[in-house]
């Protein structure tokens, strides 16, 4: 927008020109409009992010004087079996959650978009509903489902004659896998919508000619829809991956890493190092945070590099 420059030498004494008034008024406006949110962003967002690099080099319990220890925390991390165990759990969750979420979403989106069922509009809305629920509500619902004595899952299995007393979240062998479903259940709806919108933008003529050639739904899905949707699928994979690596709240609420550390993930390990009930170690927690930062940024960069189309910033 062109704001006229204040012409200094033509100004009459004691008289403000309207352009000058406009520029003072603009300064006040900018001061109010830009400064508070920008300072807030610098203080609450950018500054802590930068500071986390420094904190990672400290030995500090949060109360006593911090001691600068250089890269000791990172060396310690290399030998910390809990870090490796947490990373492994992150990896297992990733391998299960990402494909399940994407495949289920693609499949449901395809059915909802291309099947002439009248109730599809309603189903689309219903599928999205878990996405507006809070992590706590989702976690508690799944805690009810997984309970050994009174849970929905075991009761359903009993109806089919399978008598299990498994406390799905209370056993080391099942707990991590039990966490997969809350993640998938809470995430699918969003991607059904995203994929279904993308499918609607595929020209119908492509399908029509394929149908004339006698192609069935599976052929259409795998030969036309999925290849054309590739860029948006990559975006989906990236979002779900980053969300799964970062999202430790569900784990915190459902198991807090237990039993016996069998569901500990990296974010939760960091959280408990800093805010847990036992010893606090802000320095080491920040170092684990830096590792998470590297993993998350690395995942994003690798995805962008290999699938250039996915580098869409929303």
């Amino acid at each position: 927008m062109a704001v006229p420059k204040v012409a200094k030498n033509t100004r009459l004494p004691f008289q403000k020109t309207w352009t000058q008034k406009a520029s003072t008024q603009k300064r006040i406006f900018l001061l109010l409009a830009v400064t508070p949110p920008f300072l807030g962003y610098l203080l609450f967002s950018l500054y802590p992010n930068i500071l986390s690099v420094y904190y990672a080099l400290l030995n500090w319990n949060g109360i006593s004087e911090p001691v600068f220890v250089g890269f000791d925390n990172f060396v310690k991390m290399l030998h910390d079996q809990f870090v490796w165990r947490a990373l492994y759990h992150n990896f297992l969750l990733l391998v299960a959650v990402v494909p399940l979420t994407i495949i289920i979403s693609l499949f449901l989106a395809y059915l909802i978009t291309y099947m002439p069922f009248r109730e599809n509009a309603f189903l689309k809305v219903l599928f999205f509903f878990p996405n507006v629920l809070s992590t706590v509500v989702i976690a508690l619902l799944w805690a009810f489902i997984y309970d050994g004595n009174y849970g929905l899952l075991n009761s359903l299995l009993r109806m089919f004659g399978i008598n299990l007393d498994t406390f799905w979240l209370g056993q080391e062998s099942t707990a991590l896998w039990a966490l997969v479903l809350p993640f998938v259940w809470g995430g699918v709806g969003l991607y059904v919508i995203i994929f279904s919108n993308a499918m609607l933008s595929i020209p119908k003529s492509l399908y029509e000619s394929a149908i004339l050639d006698g192609a069935g739904h599976m052929t259409l899905l795998f030969k036309i829809t999925i290849p054309l949707l590739r860029p948006i699928i990559y975006v989906g994979v990236l979002f779900v991956s980053l969300g799964t690596i970062k999202g430790f709240e569900t784990v915190l609420i459902l198991t807090n890493g237990g039993p016996a550390g069998s569901t500990d993930v990296l974010g939760l390990y960091m959280f408990n190092l800093a805010f847990g009930e036992t010893v606090h170690n802000y320095g080491y927690a920040s170092a684990v945070g830096m590792l998470l930062f590297i993993i998350l940024t690395g995942t994003k960069l690798i995805m962008d590099k290999f699938f250039p189309n996915s580098g869409v910033e929303y």
Binding site: F38, S45, Y55, F271, A274, G289
Partner: peptide, 19 residues
């Protein structure tokens, strides 16, 4: 401001708390 699109934020939890 755009920089924050590249910041996952999770590593800032501890410094944010101290702040």
């Amino acid at each position: 401001i755009m920089m924050s699109l590249f910041l996952p934020g999770i590593n800032a939890l501890v410094p944010q708390y101290v702040l």
